[in-house]
């Protein structure tokens, strides 16, 4: 069975290590916070200006002055801090944030990513994504392996306008965990019940399969 969005988030949560400052993008990445082990110390950064982001507020306690980058009401955990946008991107550009998890429309086998614009159809803007992917050294993409039309999102080359070049290090999809290497997409794990062939068929870019591929442990 291919994973659902929560399954993808659950697998990515295992990449979050003790002592990490983590920036979570909108969509599946936001769900990752729900699955991070509670015996490790992790702080979530939201680029609109908070470190130490907590869960959604209890109904009735929401504060218009306390939101995340997805404009959702949130809470601040003990030890949290607030700061301006320049300081926030200073943390990102200065590589003080250890892990960035974001969504994508397309990823290419050389690590290029596209996620902000479909010419003539959809232009929402890049928000902080271009800053994040240009600076972070540890970038995990969370996305479905194929789009709604069933076409692969793991490509030889991105067809959409790029968000960043050669920057993605790992991809977790509903089908697989893939590392982006100098030689192409390297298959690390398959989702429970998903075969290597299934992943191969859903991947347009070069897929490197070496030895036995383990199943994801969730």
């Amino acid at each position: 069975m291919a994973l659902d969005k929560n399954g993808i988030a659950k697998r990515i949560a295992k990449e979050v290590k003790d002592g990490y400052y983590v920036n979570l993008g909108i969509g599946i990445p936001t769900l990752v916070a729900n699955f991070v082990r509670d015996d490790i110390q992790v702080e979530f950064q939201s680029e609109n200006g908070i470190l130490g982001m907590g869960p959604f507020p209890i109904d009735g306690e929401e504060d218009a002055d306390l939101i995340n980058a997805g404009k959702q009401t949130i809470t601040a955990r003990p030890g949290a801090s607030f700061f301006d946008s320049a300081t926030s991107f200073g943390m990102i550009r200065g590589k003080h944030v250890d892990l960035t998890i974001l969504g994508a429309m397309e990823v290419a086998e050389n690590g290029d990513i596209a996620n902000w614009k479909i010419p003539g159809k959809m232009v929402k803007g890049m928000g902080g994504a271009m800053d994040l992917v240009a600076s972070a050294e540890n970038i995990i993409v969370a996305m479905m392996h194929t789009n709604k039309a069933g076409e692969s999102k793991l490509l030889k080359r991105c067809s959409l306008p790029l968000t960043g070049v050669g920057c993605v290090t790992k991809i977790v999809t509903n089908l697989a965990v893939i590392e982006v290497t100098d030689n192409g997409f390297k298959l690390l794990e398959t989702a429970p019940g998903v075969s290597v062939e299934d992943v191969q068929n859903a991947t347009e870019g070069k897929l490197i399969v070496e030895g036995d591929i383990p199943e994801m442990q969730l």
């Binding site: 946008s85 320049a86 928000g127 271009m130 800053d131």
Partner: peptide
Amino acid sequence: PQGTLAARCQAAQQGFPAIYTPAG
């Protein structure tokens, strides 16, 4: 890019004519 937007404001505030950023 959002960080570029912040940086171009801050540059104006602080008297820098321009800044270099990796974003974009």
